[in-house]
């Protein structure tokens, strides 16, 4: 296009613009090696990759076309894992919006600045802790032998519940503990949106004789709706990410049927069973779907909430 006109001045352009290339060079090299080379490595999903051969395997391995994908889709485990991922992710999105939303609305009513600030500060501490830490804490707290929750239940005469080792309780544990970790973050987002609502609307409503409930229904909720929609839509883009770090630190073979998700499945296939190609094929399947979902959700976010990341 315009390239032709500029070709004459390429030398001059480089003379002026070389510092930018120098600045970008280190990042470009690192991205080439650690982002783009692995992307090229996805070819192993269509090969019979032999782990022992290292990176040369990309060139020497036998091509098998879509065989791995056919194998995966026939796998009963894969369907279980896909179902688990969707159920856990959706439950987390819903709970992860409702709880912080209610807390933010409650907190917004409070005029005591110190109490408000303190609540925010304390509720989002778990957000900054890793799932190793939180998992370690939960394992102790939920332990059937001497864990404090079971001791409390015991005081009411209940039998100890093996929360992390029971397929019936593992999903609630995952969802609730995810709310525990992430609640503060969304609460702060919602609270920021609530403070952004034009206060004169409330004054006008009061003059017109609107009660607190009417103010809530007609000013507060509509005011915060765009944020809620945004968080939901962005969450939908992540629907195949049910939370590797969390699940990996809390699950065990006894609860695989209910708690094993795509990412943990990919990990075990690849790093434990050394089925590099099959693991990569599952990962690729997830990436493709996720890509479609993320682009769609960002499109929706832009449309409904005028949100842009760049």
């Amino acid at each position: 296009m315009r390239e032709k006109k500029k070709k004459m001045s390429v030398k001059m352009m480089m003379k002026r613009e070389w510092p930018f290339y120098v600045m970008l060079l280190p990042s470009l090299i690192l991205m080439a090696v650690f982002a783009y080379l692995p992307m090229a490595g996805i070819v192993m999903a269509f090969q019979d990759f032999v782990p022992s051969g290292g990176i040369r395997g990309f060139f020497t391995s036998r091509w098998v076309g879509l065989d791995h994908f056919k194998y995966i889709f026939g796998l009963a485990d894969f369907r279980t894992v896909l179902g688990n991922t969707l159920i856990i992710a959706v439950a987390k999105i819903i709970a992860g919006i409702l709880v912080p939303l209610v807390l933010a609305l409650l907190l917004n009513e409070i005029r005591n600045v110190v109490f408000k600030k303190l609540t925010q500060t304390l509720v989002y501490i778990p957000y900054f802790l890793s799932w190793v830490i939180l998992g370690g804490i939960l394992i102790d707290v939920l332990s059937p032998t001497g864990g404090i929750l079971n001791r409390a239940l015991g005081a009411f005469g209940m039998e100890p519940v093996y929360f992390l080792g029971n397929p019936d309780t593992i999903r609630p544990v995952l969802v609730i503990s995810d709310v525990w970790k992430g609640c503060g973050y969304n609460m702060v987002i919602f609270l920021a949106a609530l403070t952004g609502i034009d206060q004169s609307q409330y004054e006008a409503a009061k003059v017109d004789g609107a009660g607190y409930i009417q103010q809530m229904l007609h000013i507060t909720l509509p005011g915060i709706l765009p944020q809620v929609v945004l968080v939901t839509v962005l969450g939908l883009g992540n629907i195949l990410n049910a939370g590797f770090d969390q699940v990996f630190n809390l699950y065990s073979p006894i609860v695989y049927e209910k708690a094993d998700i795509i990412d943990t499945f990919v990990y075990r296939l690849g790093m434990v069973n050394l089925q590099y190609s099959i693991s990569t094929a599952v990962g690729l399947f997830k990436s493709v779907i996720s890509f479609v979902l993320i682009t769609t959700s960002f499109g929706l976010a832009k449309k409904f909430a005028n949100y842009r990341i760049f």
Binding site: L37, P38, G41, I55, Y276, G283, L284, S287, T295
Partner: peptide, 16 residues
């Protein structure tokens, strides 16, 4: 690089 990634195993092979 924000949207696509090679995934766990290809990155592992590269790191080795």
């Amino acid at each position: 690089t924000m949207v696509f990634s090679g995934g766990m195993i290809p990155l592992f092979v590269v790191i080795k």
